[in-house]
């Protein structure tokens, strides 16, 4: 279970508050969509959860399975089962994607007290997962995300998610920069990972993604707080009417 309690966040070294008392609970097996207009704090929420140190939590807490993660380093959060699919996956020249995947998988196995994967086991696992996402092994030999198209980057994010098997998945604007075909592949990849043990937070600006990844709950984020919560029909309402009436109601 993901529990975000009264979360207040500001940009480090600045007074500007981004999140102002955000409350949200996502149960195991649940897919929660977080929607909101630009500047509402969606990406900040995902970065704060992953532990980026450009932000400062001034009040409140984030709990995974009842345990606060605020004092944890980003790699400890990952080992605790958190995964952030980045809106803009960074290009890292010189680090072959395969080497990176192996380092990530083995680091997490080590943190869980498991043995490292042998090279044949690793390659077999990656080959299978990559095939489902229409990712070629040639692409994985290239430097991480370097020169990947927008669609390739997002598929690579979902591949990492599939390989690392996190319990708490945060998808930040995963639909941005995707054409319809890529959107379908990425959504299918996410849907395949849905399970009773796994909680998802799907952050998106548009309802489009939610036609492919059907959410259980929809939450509207505005000025750093959840101002409306509902079922999947809330997303359709937003698509038809925009954010204005809900924001107006909240204000």
């Amino acid at each position: 279970m993901i529990e975000i309690k009264n979360l207040h966040v500001k940009i480090a070294d600045e007074d500007k508050m981004i999140l102002n008392g955000l409350n949200l609970t996502v149960k195991p097996g649940e897919v929660a969509a977080i929607m909101g207009p630009n500047g509402s704090g969606k990406s900040t929420l995902s970065y704060v959860m992953a532990g980026k140190d450009d932000y400062e939590v001034t009040e409140g807490d984030i709990l995974l399975n009842g345990e606060s993660i605020l004092e944890m380093e980003p790699d400890e959060r990952a080992a605790a089962g958190l995964f952030l699919a980045f809106q803009y996956p960074v290009e890292i020249p010189g680090v072959p994607t395969m080497n990176f995947l192996k380092a990530a998988m083995n680091s997490q196995r080590k943190a869980h007290g498991e043995n490292e994967l042998s090279t044949p086991e690793f390659i077999k696992t990656v080959r299978e997962a990559a095939g489902k996402l229409d990712i070629s092994m040639d692409m994985l030999k290239r430097s991480l995300n370097t020169g990947f198209s927008g669609g390739e980057k997002k598929r690579a994010e979902i591949l990492q998610m599939a390989l690392l098997e996190p319990k708490y998945c945060v998808l930040d604007e995963t639909d941005s920069g995707l054409d319809i075909d890529a959107l379908k592949i990425v959504s299918d990849g996410v849907n395949a990972l849905r399970s009773p043990e796994r909680a998802f937070m799907v952050i998106t600006h548009y309802q489009r993604l939610l036609e492919h990844i059907i959410p259980d709950t929809v939450h509207v984020l505005y000025k750093g707080r959840i101002v409306e919560t509902g079922g999947k029909e809330l997303a359709q309402h937003l698509e038809a009417n925009g954010y204005a009436d809900i924001i107006g109601k909240a204000a």
């Binding site: 380093e73 980003p74 790699d75 080992a79 980045f86 680090v95 990176f100 380092a103 990530a104 680091s107």
Partner: peptide
């Protein structure tokens, strides 16, 4: 940003730095 991305996948700071320097 490179360091944060790698650490967000569970790779320790030390190992992430080593991979980046090596690259």
């Amino acid at each position: 940003d490179h360091l944060f991305y790698m650490r967000s996948r569970g790779i320790s700071e030390r190992d992430s730095r080593a991979l980046l320097i090596k690259a």
